[in-house]
Amino acid sequence: MSVTTMTPDLHQAQGLEVTDNPGPAPKRIVTGYGFWIFILSDMVMFSCFFAAFAVLSGETAGGPHGAELFNLKNVAIETGCLLLSSFTCGMASIAADLRNRFWFQVAMAVTCALGLAFLWIEFHEFADLVARGAGPSRSAFLSAFFTLVGCHGLHVSAGVLWLLTMMAQVFAKGFRADIQRRILCFALFWHALDIIWVAVFSVVYLLGSGA
């Protein structure tokens, strides 16, 4: 009886493998998982903005509706930019794993250019709306619109800054283990922004201009 209860200790004492306890996870997994939790909490925050937008989308206070304001061609171009940038971000992840500096910098530069193109189109859309008297103070619908879409735009801006930082870090320090972990987190962030944009163009632009 006592022998069976002592078996694990005996195994460890004899240096045998204890398969059900592999020890602490590597730092890459811990870091990535922590950042994954942050991304999920960010999505919960976005869900609050989406809920506010869905409730307020009809409250135009006599002002313009989405159908009169949105230019779906611009939205399609913005979507194309973000989808392609997600793809090139994946290419950068592969290049980082292969420790190929040249292709990493090329893929990140293309990702940055596509992100900036997205921001440029979005900025012009916002400026155009404000110039037409459809700024965030016009109606509850437009307040919710600018909060939701602007929040996504701020995330993309932060992502572009982070992207440039990663390019500089790889240029100066190379593919050290800590830099590789930051690249993993950046890739997670960038792909997650794409998922949120899918919800934005579907709910805000496509449903908004149809109603």
């Binding site: 592999p22 996870a25 890459r28 997994i29 990535g32 998982y33 950042f35 592969i94 292969l98 997670l188």
Partner: peptide, 25 residues
């Protein structure tokens, strides 16, 4: 990256070779 065979970081892939990863994207 998986030193530890029982877990994978979010965003990391099981597949280590380039070809299948590229095709995935």
């Amino acid at each position: 990256h998986s030193h530890n065979p029982v877990d994978l970081a979010p965003g990391d892939e099981d597949e280590g070779r380039i070809g299948p990863r590229l095709i995935g994207y």
